[in-house]
Amino acid sequence: MFGFFKHKEKEVKKDVTEPSGATGLLPLNSQDFVMPIEGDIIPITEVEDPVFSEKMMGDGFAIVPTKGLVVSPVDGVIMNVFPTKHAIGIKSKQGHEILIHVGLETVNLKGEGFTALVKEGDQVSKGTELLTFDLDYIKKSASSTVTPVIFTNAANVTVKKQGAVKQGDNGIVSVQ
């Protein structure tokens, strides 16, 4: 799963405004990011998978979903839709790479219960529907519904709220 953004980087650079600055990334202010899923925010360190909880892929947070819909949290481009449809990679117009990974061990479901609504290279805006998933099926068939939202190339992720959030809420996350 590591490096999943790398293979499309040259192709994507044509479609996304390249940021400038020392880190190559522009800040992602709390108004630039909306909640991709309705549910309860938990710290990434509480995810029961060390790849996420130990921040091996990057910093972020997780959501325990209450509805089976993922929307784009940013304006940007779809970089990757995993063949099993359980995860989507997005590059924001500020240059941040975001992985939304629905559930834990959901790769083993081989796409069952998931419907991708976008494809690689699609331009998206905040709130664009990306993916639907059968929440009941995932509860029965996977180890967890916890959905990590990871910034794979960000240095400083600030989450200003824990607990219940509605899809589309903003003012909760900022990234440097």
Results as ranks from 00 to 15, higher is better:
145 T>Y: 02
16 V>L: 05
60 G>T: 09
70 V>E: 10
110 K>Q: 15
144 S>L: 02
120 E>S: 07
146 V>P: 07
66 T>P: 09
8 K>N: 15
95 G>R: 00
174 S>T: 10
67 K>W: 09
53 S>G: 10
170 N>H: 14
68 G>Y: 04
159 V>C: 06
56 M>S: 11
44 I>Y: 13
90 I>R: 05
128 T>C: 03
22 A>G: 12
133 F>H: 11
97 E>T: 07
82 F>R: 01
73 P>Q: 08
60 G>I: 10
52 F>S: 12
73 P>S: 07
168 G>E: 02
83 P>L: 02
102 V>A: 03
35 M>C: 06
87 A>Q: 06
3 G>P: 11
50 P>M: 06
70 V>W: 03
12 V>R: 10
168 G>T: 03
108 N>S: 11
146 V>G: 10
36 P>E: 00
16 V>A: 07
166 K>Q: 15
101 H>F: 08
171 G>A: 05
19 P>A: 14
56 M>T: 00
12 V>K: 08
10 K>V: 04
13 K>L: 14
172 I>M: 04
135 L>H: 12
72 S>I: 08
156 N>A: 06
29 N>V: 00
79 M>N: 08
68 G>P: 14
105 E>P: 08
66 T>F: 02
30 S>K: 14
62 A>L: 09
41 I>H: 09
6 K>D: 14
93 K>E: 14
49 D>N: 11
62 A>I: 05
38 E>F: 00
48 E>D: 15
42 I>A: 05
173 V>W: 01
5 F>S: 10
153 N>W: 02
167 Q>C: 07
148 P>D: 06
2 F>E: 14
139 K>M: 11
16 V>W: 03
154 A>I: 06
104 L>V: 03
112 E>D: 13
85 K>N: 14
28 L>S: 10
134 D>M: 12
171 G>Q: 02
159 V>I: 11
13 K>H: 13
172 I>P: 12
139 K>S: 14
145 T>D: 05
51 V>N: 12
152 T>G: 11
115 T>C: 01
173 V>E: 00
114 F>P: 13
82 F>P: 09
62 A>Y: 04
8 K>W: 06
62 A>S: 15
13 K>W: 04
49 D>Q: 12
150 I>R: 00
107 V>I: 14
12 V>P: 06
57 M>V: 13
20 S>K: 14
25 L>S: 08
149 V>P: 09
84 T>K: 12
71 V>T: 15
17 T>Y: 08
116 A>G: 06
109 L>K: 13
105 E>I: 03
103 G>D: 03
70 V>Q: 11
150 I>K: 05
112 E>A: 15
143 S>T: 10
111 G>E: 02
126 K>S: 13
75 D>C: 10
31 Q>I: 01
162 Q>C: 01
85 K>H: 07
135 L>I: 10
51 V>Q: 04
9 E>R: 13
82 F>A: 13
92 S>T: 03
7 H>W: 07
27 P>N: 05
135 L>F: 13
136 D>N: 15
81 V>F: 04
17 T>E: 07
134 D>W: 10
